[in-house]
Design a protein around this nucleic acid. Structure first.
Lengths: 147, 147
DNA sequence: AAATATAATTTGATAATCAAAGTATTGAGG
DNA sequence: CCTCAATACTTTGATTATCAAATTATATTT
């Protein structure tokens, strides 16, 4: 049993590095030269949030507002995202993707879809459930122990 | 079926952020104030490599030698790792953990053990296999498509 | 012995990050 | 309505992480 745990650990660590590097490589192959992997994740968070304020996106990415401000400054300059002050509450800044931003968002989504398909297609239904169970347990664990 | 894929994607993304933040939090709780999560990963790579040269560790971490050089400079200054030139081939630099470094290495290992236990203990033997299968498929996929 | 290859470091530049201080706006209590 | 506290964000100042390209030192090949 110890064996399995050790393997699982190594596998997870390897996967971690691999996913990040693969995302980067994917971007280059897709011809995107002016975005880092970090910036893609910001675009991703903006794109999938249904009410993407600075605060919401910073929270989702687990970075401070200051960090996000500089990231958004750059992405705004490069015309991937746009800022707009809230009308009801003028302290709030709402973010949105430009056409250019939406484009990259879609491409990155494809990468993730491929990744997920690769896992799911290789598994039977019951194995699929086992995977979900394992991942959910892990999330619960982190939520209760390190939130 | 689409549902499961979407959930799996979100779960993986969430897990990704959660693991990194949890590792950071773990360090703070353990009283380690002068190491970033990145530096821990360097210490980890040095500790678990059976022949930790600069090149080997840089390769494992997927960073350039230049990047690792600066990281090791800092860790050496803070006395977590030590450098030693190879005697047989004097171009090579062998790294090792100091007592302080080994200490943190052990603590971080505990974190990982807890994490792995949390997954494995919640799964039956067959579910465990399914999880491994899913992860291994993913690694194969990245290796062939993005290496 | 000279040319080439390898292992690491240095250099110069940029991106990512945080904590703390600052700005603007809102909301609550008197 | 006014003040004061809270909220949402930006700015500032500093550090760390990163890379590509140039450099240094050593080994290997021819």
């Amino acid at each position: 049993m110890k064996e399995v745990k050790a393997i699982l650990n190594d596998t997870l660590v390897l996967l971690f590095n691999l996913v990040l590097k693969s995302e980067e490589k994917f971007l280059r192959e897709v011809g995107c030269k002016d975005l880092s992997i970090n910036e893609i994740h910001v675009i991703d968070a903006v794109g999938k949030n249904e009410s993407p304020t600075m605060g919401a996106v910073a929270g989702e990415l687990n970075v401070t507002l200051g960090t996000l401000t500089t990231a958004i400054n750059n992405l705004e300059k490069k015309e991937y995202v746009a800022r707009k002050r809230g009308v009801k509450d003028r302290r709030v800044v709402f973010l949105s993707l430009t056409e250019k931003g939406q484009n990259i968002f879609d491409l990155h989504q494809e990468f993730h879809d491929d990744m997920i398909n690769e896992i799911v297609n290789s598994l039977s239904d019951s194995e699929e459930l086992a995977l979900m169970k394992g991942l959910n347990n892990l999330i619960d664990y982190f939520m209760t122990n390190y939130s």
